[in-house]
Computed example of a mutant assay.
Amino acid sequence: MKTYSAKESEINRNWYIVDATDQTLGRLASEVAQLLRGKHKPEFTPHIDTGDYVIVVNAENINLTGDKWDQKIHYSHSNYPGGIKEVTYRELKKKDPEFIIEKAVKGMLPSNKLGKRIGKKLKVYKGTEHPHKAQNPEKLDLSERR
């Protein structure tokens, strides 16, 4: 019996919408990463993008456990001497809540060309409104998947 390998032309991609309200960041990110990668499908092939599109809404309502809002720090560097900047996740949540979810999910994807292509199928929005109504996204409750 031969091992099945999916082809780009055979892949059927769906659109899912996930509400981040009162979800824990890591648990949400791991579920979304699996959907983006396509691991929930029987035709999953590791070297081909078989995943679905995921829209995450209400990014400003995400939760972190413990004191991580003040202890977890995001670092960025301008590539100049002394150009390091640090921002706590509490400040980052006020400024750019979408970035928190994008960073968590992309950290769970492969670090190669395939991972970059998979990461482009993630759409994160601060509120409940999103411009993807034409794709008829299916509402997905992640608490039922566990």
Rank of each mutant, 00 (worst) to 15 (best):
W15F: 14
K126W: 05
I100V: 07
T24Q: 15
K113W: 03
H47T: 10
E86T: 08
R37E: 00
F44G: 02
Y80F: 15
A29E: 13
V56C: 10
K72E: 08
G51I: 01
G66D: 07
K123H: 14
P137C: 05
I118T: 07
N61A: 13
E31R: 08
K85F: 12
A104H: 01
S78F: 08
A33N: 02
T45A: 06
A20K: 02
K126R: 11
L35F: 15
D22F: 13
E91C: 03
R117C: 01
E8W: 03
N112H: 08
S111Q: 07
E31K: 15
G51N: 02
A59H: 09
K106N: 03
K113H: 12
H132N: 13
E10C: 00
E43R: 07
N79F: 14
K85I: 10
Y89F: 11
P110F: 00
M108V: 05
T128H: 08
P131Q: 01
P110R: 12
K72L: 13
H77R: 15
E129D: 03
A20H: 03
E129H: 14
I100H: 02
M108H: 15
E129G: 06
Y75T: 09
G83L: 13
H74A: 13
Q23T: 04
Y75I: 09
G119P: 06
L28W: 14
E60W: 04
Q135M: 14
K94N: 01
H40Q: 13
T88Y: 03
M1G: 09
R37Y: 09
H77D: 13
N12F: 15
R117Q: 12
K68F: 01
P97G: 09
V57R: 13
R37D: 00
R37G: 00
E10N: 09
A59G: 11
D22Y: 06
D96K: 09
E129Y: 07
